[in-house]
Design a binder for these strands. Structure first.
Lengths: 335, 335
DNA sequence: CTGAAAGCGCTTACAG
DNA sequence: CTGAAAGCGCTTACAG
C-alpha cells in the first residue's frame, strides 16, 4: 500500500512550489507556465497516482460540490426515481448528492438538514412535509440555496418544482365525464400537504364547472400513512348505497394499489361497471387485468429542472423560480 | 442574514483560545476545565448559533463520517430499499451516506468510486457488477475499507453480505417437487454475476438430488437488461411442446413481472396448471389473481450487517467477514 | 486549568 | 514564468 500523494509530494519531487503544481493540475494560468515544467508536473502526478483531496479543496474554496436531497422516504419508488434523475443531472454538472429520508417527521427533517449543512452542502433539494415552513425559513434567513420538489407552500416565496395538481385532477375528472361517467368518487388524503389538497380542489372544480352535483359522501379522505384499511372502507362505501359510483379518482398509486386489490376480490368489472384513474404509475397497476389509467408526472423533467434551478441559485443568488408542471393522462384500459 | 460563527469568533468573544472552545464543545478534557469558563463558552456558542464545520474537522481528523454506497440503480426497488436500511443504520452510528448508480457499467462504477474516494469517504458499500474485480483490487491494495452486498466474487477475499442463492433456489425447487410438480422450468439470467449463477446451480442440484431428469430446454437464459421480449419467448417456449412445464422458477421479480403479464394474457390457471415461485417481492406480484410465492431476501438484516461490518473495518482494520444469508420462502397462492 | 503553535491539503492574491 | 505566504476552520500534542 502506497501512501496517498499530496501536492506537496509532487512539488518536492519536481522541485517547484505547491502553488505551481496546483495551478498546473487545475489548468489555471494556462499560457503563463512553461510547457516543460507543466509537462513534468503532470507526469509526476500521474506516476504518484495523485488525486486531489476534495475536503481540503472545499475548505479553501467554500464549495463542496455537493447537494443534499431530503425526501420522505428514499425507498418509495416515486422518490427513488426522482433521486436517480437528480443524481444523473447533478453528476453531469459535477455535483454529488447525499440523500436523507425524513419519514415526514419534523425532527428527522431538521436533523438531516443540520447534518447536511454542517457538511457544507452547496444547496438542498427538498420534498418538504407538513409544518416544515419554519425550517425553510431558517434556510431563507441564512441565504442557503434550496428548491422544493413535489410539495411546496403557497405562502412561501421560494424556488419550487411541482405538479399542477389542481389541473391534473381537473383533467382526470373531465375525461371521466366526457366518457359518460356520472357518479365520480374520489379517495384522497386527509392532510395539510398543499399539493394533495389541490387534487381534491381540482376534482371538485371539474364537477362544479360541468354542473354536476357535489355529493359530500363522494370525496373520501384517508390518513397519509398506514391507511390500507381506511382505503378499503372508503372504496366499499363508495360502491355501496343506492347510487354507487361508476368512476373512481385515486389520489396516489398507494391508494390505487389498495383499492384495486379490494376491487379485484369483489369481482366488479373494470371499466364496465367502474372506471378508475390513479395518480402516478406503479408496476403493480400494470398487472391488473384492466391496466390502470393514470396521471403521469414528468419525473425526469422535474428532477432536472429542480437540479438546474438549484445550481443556478448556487452560482448567482438571483431570482425565485416557481414551476407547476402539467401531468399527462396515460390512457389504458381502466378508463 | 448573520454570518456563520467559527470557533475563533466564540474564542474572541469569551476571551479564551480556540483550543479551549474546541475542547469544551467536544466534551474533551472534561474535568480539567473550569465549570465557569465551560459554561460561558457553551452559552456564547449557543447565542451565536454555532455549528461545527465538518469539512474543517474532517481535514484535520482524516475522517469524514461518510460512507459511499454504489449500486446498479437506486431507482430499482431492491436497491432503494437496501439503501434506506443502510441510511438508517449509518445514521444511527453517526454516518452519512452518499449514493451513486453505476448502471452495471465499469466506467461509471470507477468514476463513482473515484469521486467518492476524492471526497474521502471512510468506506464503501458496493453492489458490484461483472468484471469489476480489478477496481476492488485497487481498494484492497490501498487499504480502503469496503464491503460487498448482494453480489460478490468467490475468488476475492473480501467482506461481503449476500444471499445464499444456491440454497434459496434449491429450497424453492424442493418445495415444488414436494407439491408434486414434475416438470419444473426456470427462467434465469445469462450473466457472469456469480450470485445469479448460483440460482441456476441450486435449481439443477435440487432436481439432480431427487433424481429428476435435467432437460436442457427447461433452463432458459435471458439478458440482464431489456429482456422483456426474451422473457416472454422463454416462457412461451417452456409452456409449449409436448411436455409443457407445470412449475416455473423465476430468477428475479423483474422476470416474474414480465412472465406473469404474459401468463395473465394466456389464461393459464395458476397454480392449477402452473405453479410459480419468484425471487424477491414486488408490489406488482401482489395484484395478480394468484399472488406469487417468492423467496424473500432479508434486506433489512443484510443492510444492517453490511453497514456494521464496514464500520468495524473502518475503526480497526481487522478480519474479513463473509456472510451468506438464508432466504425465506413466502408461500402464497401461486405455488 | 489554559494557551501558543503546528498542521491537515489545498487555493489564490500578491510580489517579483 | 514562478514562489513565498496567508488562510480556510478545525484538532491536538505539548508546554506551562
Amino acid at each position: 500500500m502506497k501512501k496517498k500523494a499530496s501536492l506537496k509530494d509532487i512539488a518536492q519531487k519536481v522541485g517547484v512550489s505547491t502553488a505551481l503544481v496546483s495551478y498546473v493540475l487545475n489548468n489555471k494560468k494556462e499560457g503563463r507556465i512553461s510547457k516543460a515544467v507543466a509537462e513534468r508536473i503532470r507526469e509526476v502526478a500521474h506516476e504518484m497516482d495523485y488525486r486531489t483531496n476534495q475536503i481540503a479543496r472545499s475548505l479553501k474554496t467554500r464549495k463542496t460540490q455537493t447537494i443534499g436531497l431530503i425526501v420522505a422516504d428514499i425507498s418509495n419508488p416515486f422518490f427513488s426515481k426522482l433521486a436517480r434523475f437528480i443524481e444523473d443531472e447533478a453528476d453531469k454538472k459535477g455535483y454529488t448528492v447525499i440523500i436523507g429520508s425524513s419519514d415526514e417527521y419534523q425532527d428527522k427533517f431538521r436533523k438531516l438538514m443540520d447534518t447536511f449543512l454542517d457538511r457544507q452542502v452547496d444547496g438542498l433539494i427538498i420534498a418538504a412535509g407538513a409544518k416544515m415552513e419554519k425550517h425553510l425559513h431558517y434556510l431563507i434567513d441564512n441565504n442557503i440555496p434550496f428548491v422544493l420538489v413535489d410539495r411546496y407552500f403557497p405562502k412561501l416565496h421560494t424556488n419550487y418544482v411541482a405538479l399542477d395538481n389542481f389541473g391534473a385532477a381537473y383533467k382526470a375528472v373531465n375525461y371521466l365525464l366526457e366518457k359518460g361517467r356520472k357518479h365520480i368518487g374520489m379517495v384522497a388524503y386527509d392532510t395539510e400537504l398543499h399539493h394533495l389538497n389541490e387534487r381534491k380542489r381540482g376534482y371538485l372544480a371539474a364537477l362544479k364547472d360541468k354542473q354536476f352535483p357535489i355529493l359530500k359522501g363522494r370525496l373520501k379522505e384517508v390518513a397519509l400513512v398506514n391507511s390500507e384499511l381506511a382505503i378499503e372502507r372508503a372504496v366499499t362505501a363508495l360502491l355501496a348505497g343506492k347510487q354507487p359510483v361508476d368512476a373512481l379518482l385515486l389520489s396516489s398509486s398507494y391508494i390505487a394499489n389498495s383499492a384495486v386489490k379490494l376491487i379485484n376480490s369483489l369481482s366488479i368489472k373494470v371499466p364496465d361497471e367502474l372506471a378508475i384513474i390513479s395518480f402516478d404509475e406503479s408496476e403493480a397497476l400494470d398487472l391488473f387485468y384492466a391496466p390502470i389509467t393514470y396521471m403521469k408526472q414528468p419525473l425526469c423533467e422535474m428532477a432536472q429542472l429542480a437540479t438546474n434551478i438549484l445550481l443556478d441559485s448556487i452560482e448567482k443568488n438571483n431570482k425565485v423560480t416557481q414551476v407547476n408542471m402539467e401531468a399527462e393522462l396515460i390512457i389504458r384500459q381502466s378508463a
